[in-house]
Structure formats: structure tokens, C-alpha cells
Amino acid sequence: MAAYSAAKEAGIPVIFSAVSDPVSAGLAASLDAPNTGATGTSDALNLEGQLKMIRALMPNATSVGVLYTTSEPNSVSHLAKFKELAPKYNFTVEEVGITDASEVAAGAAALVAKGVSCVNNFTDNNVVNNLSVLLNATNAANIPVFGSEQEQVKNGCVASETLDYVALGVTTGSMAAQVLKGADVKTMPVSVVTDSKPVYSKTNCDKFGITIPEEYKGATNLD
């Protein structure tokens, strides 16, 4: 935000990438008409698809734990939507908020203590950047973690309904090119990337006795 504020003050257009909720983050007045001197791409996670996957892979699960940074707008908005959708899949949501990366270990321990069936990650910077810390706690307690994108699955999570971040990057670059050619950043709509696909790690699933159900046999195994 400091870089955005400096650019805005200098009248320099800003193209952001992979901001889940640019309105809450203060980067856009609306998705259709940002009107702030900034526009870009939004990686609004497919939370419905994620919950559907968790239910399919863990038919007996009752609760999903979420570790998130309370000051990160993307995480706060994702959590609100996740909690809204969870009852549809017969899940309760147990949340633990942290303020910075130093609290990830304690937050992970708190989730384990709540006895959650599994944990779901968003794109929370503090959590993702310290994923190994979270996994150390959950693996020791035999609690699987579902990631928000495929790199998290490659690094130890069991599965994810992942967005295509390569396509998102291409879209962001295209928008930047349009601005360089004279397009007005204030009226250029935010591009929301919504296409997702299921991915999993058979190796990681096997550790928790998770069997891939028939409806996900076509999902990509990242092993």
C-alpha cells in the first residue's frame, strides 16, 4: 500500500496482480470502475469448489480450521465468504487470527487444540510464507491441510481447487500494456480470474488415509 500511495501521489498508474478483494484493500472504488489510479487482476478463490472438494475427500469431517491474518483484507473477506458457505456442506469453521508471521506457530497450535478435522488455507501472506510451520503442527496431529493453490499442494497440502496463476499473470501483463498504450486506468475494470481446477497430491493424501473419490479421478495429481 505504501508503494501504491506514493505512485498515486505522483500520478503514476498502478497495475496490481492477484489481489483477492481490491475494494476492501482500498485499491478500487468498484470492480467495474476502479476510479483510484489503480486497476489489475483479482484472484477471488473458488471457495464453493474448495468446500465441495473437502467434503468429497473427507466425508466424515465436521469442522474446518482457518488460520488467517486479521489485518489482511483478502483473508478477512475470504473468511467471511467461507463461513457463509460452510453450512451448505455441513461444516463448522474454527478460526484463529494472527497479527504477524511470528504468531503462525502459536496459531497452528491453537487450531490443533480445537480438534478440527482439517485446515483450509487462503492466500494469506503470513500463513503461506510460513506453510512449513503450519504443516509441522498439523502433520504431528494427523490433520490434513487443504491449500488455496497448487504450489501449496506441492509443498505439503493434500489438495486444492486452484486458480490458474499463470493465466492471471498474462492478464495482468496485458492490462499493463494497455495502460502504456494510453488506456485510462481509472475506468479499466478489474479483471476477476475465476477459472479453477482441482489438484491433489496422492502422496500427501495417502499420509492421511484420504482416498480420491470417483468424481475427482480426473483431477491433476501433482506428485
Results as ranks from 00 to 15, higher is better:
Tyr4Trp: 11
Ser5Asp: 14
Ser5Val: 02
Ser5Arg: 15
Ala10Val: 02
Ser30Glu: 11
Asp32Gln: 14
Asp32Asn: 14
Asn35Leu: 11
Gly37Asp: 12
Ala38Met: 09
Gly40Ile: 02
Gly40Asn: 07
Ser42Pro: 09
Ser42Glu: 11
Ser42Arg: 08
Ala44Trp: 09
Asn46Ala: 15
Glu48Gln: 14
Gly49Val: 02
Leu51Met: 06
Ile54Pro: 01
Met58Ser: 12
Asn60Cys: 01
Ala61Lys: 12
Gly65Glu: 10
Val66Met: 13
Val66Arg: 11
Val66Ser: 04
Leu67Gly: 04
Leu67Asp: 05
Tyr68Gly: 01
Ser77Asn: 13
Leu79Ala: 09
Ala80Ile: 11
Ala80Asp: 14
Lys81Asp: 10
Lys81Asn: 13
Lys83Arg: 14
Lys88Ala: 14
Phe91Trp: 08
Asp100Arg: 08
Ala106Cys: 03
Ala110Trp: 01
Lys114Gly: 04
Gly115Ile: 04
Cys118Ser: 15
Val119Tyr: 01
Val119Trp: 00
Thr123Asp: 06
Val128Arg: 03
Asn130Tyr: 04
Asn130Lys: 06
Val133Ser: 07
Leu134Pro: 04
Leu134Trp: 01
Asn136Trp: 00
Val145Gln: 05
Val145Leu: 02
Ser148Tyr: 01
Glu149Arg: 00
Val153His: 08
Asn155Gly: 06
Gly156Ile: 10
Ala159Val: 07
Ala159Thr: 09
Val166Tyr: 15
Leu168Gln: 11
Thr171Tyr: 00
Ser174Gly: 13
Met175Tyr: 05
Ala176Thr: 03
Ala177Leu: 13
Ala177Cys: 00
Ala183Lys: 14
Asp184Val: 03
Lys186Ser: 14
Thr187Lys: 14
Met188Gln: 15
Val190Pro: 07
Val192Arg: 06
Val192Asp: 09
Asp195Cys: 00
Ser196Met: 04
Pro198Cys: 08
Ser201Arg: 10
Cys205Ile: 02
Lys207Phe: 00
Lys207Thr: 12
Phe208Ile: 07
Gly209Cys: 05
Gly209Leu: 04
Glu215Met: 13
Glu215Tyr: 02
Lys217Val: 05
Gly218Asn: 15
Ala219Pro: 06
Thr220Met: 11
